[in-house]
């Protein structure tokens, strides 16, 4: 997994790339959580994520919940087909914020 962060005002966009599994979830959290805790609205661009398993889904849930707790939000953007399929299998498409 690789990532790139761009910031525009209060919005931080994290472009994730590659496969997100148990092996990289800690790294993903290390990237995303400080932005949320810093009060940013975080946009996760998942266009280049070819694979995500339950560990990756857990990162999305955790991020979403942490942001909600702090009065902010995490928005999922340009979700790849394969990741959207897993989100839907987990029945999270109505829970997570998808734009």
């Amino acid at each position: 997994m690789s990532y790139k962060i761009t910031e525009d005002g209060n919005i931080a966009t994290v472009h994730l790339d590659g496969e997100i599994d148990m092996d990289v979830t800690e790294k993903a959290k290390e990237v995303i959580m400080p932005l949320i805790e810093g009060g940013k609205e975080v946009h996760l661009n998942l266009k280049e994520v070819q694979y995500m398993d339950s560990s990756g889904i857990s990162v999305l849930i955790e991020s979403h919940q942490k942001a909600a707790e702090l009065g902010s939000r995490v928005v999922l953007k340009e979700i790849s087909k394969s990741v959207l399929k897993v989100i839907m299998m987990a029945k999270l498409e109505q829970i997570l914020i998808i734009e």
Binding site: D53, S54, I57, S58, V59, I61, E62, Q65, V86, A90
Partner: peptide, 14 residues
């Protein structure tokens, strides 16, 4: 329970 939204435990469900 899939209705219980929390991190973890989804693997077996999948």
């Amino acid at each position: 329970n899939i209705e219980d939204i929390k991190p973890g435990g989804l693997g077996t469900f999948f």
